[in-house]
Computed example of a mutant assay.
Amino acid sequence: MSAEPPIDLACGEPSFVDLTFVGLDAVPAAGEERHAHDLVRGPGGAAITAIGAARLGLSVALASPLGDDAEGDFVRAALEAEGVRWTGRRVARTSLTAVMPAGGERAMATFDNGAETGAKELGAGRPRAVVLSVDRLALAPAGAAVYATVGDETARRCGASGELPEEVATARALLVNEREALLLSGADDAEAAARALATRTPLVVVTLGPRGALAVAEGGERAVRAEGVPVEAVDTTGAGDLFCAAYVWADLNGAPLPDRLRWAVLHAALSVRVATAVAGAAPLEALAEAGMRRGLVLPDPRAITSMKEEW
């Protein structure tokens, strides 16, 4: 019997259950109680990226450890319903985040189970590409395209030390938000931050929230921008995860850099119109329709000749 074909993408970051308090008029201050209109439970963290990429047609695995508890059962069932393969291991408890969106911003409180993805779990499906934070880049399977991300805590630590793991130099792209880029680089604005970081890695992509995104290639000589998509934001939780999912989808399907940015910005923008990222993660048909209204053409994977094409 022949081996199964490699999957397109494996996500190795932690996953959570998100408990989202919908309809708050403001985030509660210390000692204050406010009432939500609803409470919604959904997959969070790397599960958002995995589900978002699967809805765009990629074959996806999630390697995050999940609890042997009701919350873990919930996430595993959600992954199965979306066609996402779970290659992680069972641990005692599932990580959980309480999300309080209000006024286009949000506050969060998180319990993290502290369990880490293993290299064997990440490589189980022989993925073509992986999404990993810079702290976990050493886990990447040989030959897989690596899309590196940075969390806020890591950005503060690496920015203070001026150091990034050496594996960043071989990543396909480093994807960060504006705050993370500024922390990592010490620069005063996003483009200067991207140019500084582009001396460390082949491509830096900086998300700018409602202002869109920009990318700077190795050496900082070329910058590409994608304008934001005007929407009324209800819940911005997970928008960066869905930006990443759409960017990887577009890249693996051969889209040039300007189109990768535009597709990713659009996918993220569509998601914030409703509560929870998974509820807002557009399937391919909806994203394609929204893209065509903006002059975008779906990438054609038959046009791919190499993952080493010019940026």
Rank of each mutant, 00 (worst) to 15 (best):
N253T: 14
P230L: 08
P210L: 08
L270T: 09
L182F: 08
E153V: 13
G228M: 04
E178K: 10
R200D: 03
A233F: 05
L252N: 09
E180Q: 05
A269C: 05
V224H: 01
E191M: 13
V150Q: 00
T199V: 10
V206I: 01
C158N: 07
D241M: 11
T237N: 15
A181V: 13
W249P: 07
R260D: 04
R260L: 03
R211F: 06
A277C: 00
G162V: 12
L164F: 00
A144V: 06
E191T: 12
V248A: 06
E166R: 15
V176R: 00
L174F: 02
W249F: 09
L175V: 15
V204L: 00
P258W: 12
A145I: 07
A194E: 11
L203D: 10
V272Y: 01
L174K: 11
Y147M: 01
A192S: 07
A194P: 12
D251M: 07
G151C: 06
A160P: 09
G159F: 07
E166H: 11
L242W: 03
V146Q: 01
D241F: 02
A155H: 06
A279C: 08
A226L: 12
P141S: 08
A217Y: 01
P230G: 04
A279H: 14
L175D: 14
P202A: 00
P210M: 10
A192C: 03
A144N: 03
A198T: 09
R179V: 14
D241G: 12
G151Y: 07
N177P: 13
L184I: 04
W263S: 05
F243L: 05
Y247N: 04
A275L: 04
P210H: 13
V224F: 00
G219K: 04
T199L: 13
T236M: 12
T237F: 01
V150G: 00
P230C: 09
V274R: 15
V216K: 01
L184C: 07
L270Q: 09
L252F: 10
A190E: 12
V248C: 07
A190D: 11
G186M: 08
L183R: 11
D251C: 04
A268L: 04
V229Y: 14
